[in-house]
Write a protein that binds this DNA or RNA. Structure first.
Lengths: 212, 212
DNA sequence: TAGATTGGTTATTGGTTGATTACTTAGCAC
DNA sequence: GTGCTAAGTAATCAACCAATAACCAATCTA
């Protein structure tokens, strides 16, 4: 087809490269979140973004660079939310405010999970160093800007990793089926569990692209 | 070569299928731990185990079944250690004993990380349900056998996910370079940090097999 | 409205990868 | 030793994937 009609609804009128780039980053965040770095193909990302596969590669150079940009963008959004929670006037304790901000990020599809996928690839020579840098960036924020001590910071991060794991496991899928799951999720998400349960999140693609 | 000489040292005299199978599972645990499910190829697992690639496939049927067996084996070992810590007579509080047992599992190369890679693939139609089942198995143990309440259990698991993340990130690689890393790791590993630092763990393969 | 620029596409390819098929040989029973 | 069974290997393949090359058409500008 020469007249472009994207399947994601947006008519294929031309876009400024910068906007299209952001659109691809959003799509890539979702797909990487679902299948991880190695499980994701540029073709699936392209389809999710409504562009051709070679275009994805041309805009970002390589799949690896695309993933690194996804990580960076996710971290930027995360830090933005944390700073907003820090600046906010409220009676709620800071740790709780930031916890709420963190859970809120779960509604940004794939964002926390892409980060988590990066965190478990520390062995990779390109991804590993960036992932460590990103994680430590959050830690330093907690220590110096948020005013947490080392142990508070560690516990806050542990809670975050727990949340990431619950999302990654898609534990909410068993919420109706298993009372223990309900109990665990209520403990892991003292507030805002409803937000998480509201996210049905159908798979991004029928997995016809990525490898088995 | 017709006379078999494995590169892992063990001479290639024939082995009982059961033993060879366990040997492949060990090797697969290491490789899956390093690169995750999609990032691992059966050829790399085979080389690490000192057998041919088709043999790996023939013993386990598919790569997916191999990964599921790796997860099950890891969980069995984990539960075994937890039950041992529970049975143990000691003045140390149970949670601490189990925490120590957990960190001790880090010396079993790839074991905790393979689990973590499974936990983050909850979307996969085969792996997801098994991963959730395994995670909930641990939670139920904490609740009913270890006698923890819901919140204690959740915090214990959060600590575990934090440990997994630190290992996955290979945070110890920056231990000498970054004071903040030292502080964080001391907070995350109140005891037994030395054990973690002792694990240098060279990469399992020169990554000539798995995909970029 | 000609021409340049920018935002895309189609076609293609070399290298992997999981899996299948067919073949070989070590070790045991007798 | 002879034959049977179990423990492997070598050869091969169809599918897939990231990346490259070549081309095309909107939109802006002079």
């Amino acid at each position: 087809m020469s007249s472009v009609t994207k399947e994601n609804g947006t008519k294929g009128t031309r876009m400024r490269a910068e906007d299209r780039r952001e659109l691809i980053l959003k799509a890539a965040t979702q797909v990487f979140g679902d299948y991880g770095y190695f499980g994701t193909t540029t073709a699936v990302v392209a389809r999710a973004a409504g562009v051709s596969q070679p275009y994805v590669v041309r805009v970002f150079g390589t799949k690896e660079k695309l993933f690194l940009e996804v990580l960076q963008r996710a971290l930027d959004l995360l830090m933005h939310e944390f700073r907003a929670a820090l600046a906010e006037e409220s009676d709620i304790p800071l740790a709780d405010r930031m916890g709420l901000a963190y859970v809120g990020l779960a509604s940004n599809r794939g964002l926390l999970l892409s980060l988590m996928h990066g965190f478990v690839l520390g062995r990779d020579p390109e991804i590993g160093p960036e992932a460590r840098k990103g994680f430590m960036c959050v830690y330093r924020f907690l220590r110096s800007e948020a005013g947490f001590d080392a142990d508070e910071s560690q516990r806050f991060l542990a809670g975050g990793m727990m949340i990431n794991t619950m999302i990654g496991l898609r534990m909410t899928d068993d919420f109706d089926r298993d009372a223990d799951v309900r109990e665990l999720l209520h403990a892991a998400f003292p507030q805002k569990l409803d937000v998480l349960l509201a996210l049905a999140e159908p798979p991004i693609a029928e997995r016809n692209g990525a490898r088995a």
